[in-house]
Structure formats: C-alpha cells, structure tokens
Amino acid sequence: MKAGIIFTGTGPILVLTSYDSFTDPKFVEKMATKGIKKFIARELPVEKVKEKYGLQYSIILGDLKQTDDLRVLDYNGHNVFYNFSFKEMGEPIYYEP
C-alpha cells in the first residue's frame, strides 16, 4: 500500500494505491483514464495519512482491491497541500509521457 500526493495541472490530489510505484505503467494508465497524463508524485507515510484522515481513510481503504488499484482519498487541493509538510513527503517523482 502506498499513499501519495499527486500534483497535477489542476492541483494536488491525495491517492491510495496498491501499485508498487507511482511510475508503474498500469498506475500511469489509471491516472490517464482520469485525465492526468503528466504529474509529480510525492509519497507520504501511510500512517500519517491514516492519522489525518481517520474514518475517511478506512472507508476508502475498505474499497481498495488488493492489487492493481487506485483510489482518490482527497481531491480538495488546498486541503491536501496544507495537510502535510514538505518534510513528510518523499522525494519527487516526475512523470511525463
């Protein structure tokens, strides 16, 4: 399980995924189906996300399949951006086709 902020052209979103990498071709394909073809991903500690989102995290996680899945936990860019410090975020991962 991975959690991360995905910075897109319309703002950041917070995602949970069962993919091993934010550059996994199937992850990228799922992002493209959501209209996101270019992004910057920053991984977050799953425990921090769980702590900040509580019940919402549990509900979304309960809907997440074991493999090959992606769920948007928060699409309010302002909320996502200010909920986590840069120190909590992993190194940026750039994806551009």
Rank of each mutant, 00 (worst) to 15 (best):
M1H: 13
M1K: 14
K2E: 04
G4Y: 06
I6N: 13
T8I: 10
G9W: 00
V15D: 12
L16R: 04
L16D: 14
T17D: 09
S18M: 07
Y19W: 15
D20M: 03
F22T: 12
T23C: 11
T23H: 12
D24T: 10
D24N: 15
K30Y: 12
A32V: 00
T33F: 12
K34I: 08
G35W: 05
K38Q: 14
F39S: 07
I40S: 02
A41C: 11
A41T: 06
R42C: 14
R42M: 11
L44A: 07
L44D: 04
K48D: 11
K50L: 04
E51C: 00
Y53K: 09
Y57F: 15
Y57N: 10
I59N: 11
G62V: 09
L64D: 09
L64G: 05
K65Y: 07
K65S: 09
Q66D: 13
D68A: 10
D68S: 15
D69C: 12
V72C: 13
L73E: 05
L73R: 07
L73G: 08
D74K: 07
D74P: 06
Y75W: 04
N79G: 01
N79Y: 02
Y82V: 09
N83V: 02
S85A: 01
S85H: 03
F86C: 00
G90S: 05
P92S: 09
Y94G: 02
Y94S: 03
Y94M: 04
Y95V: 11
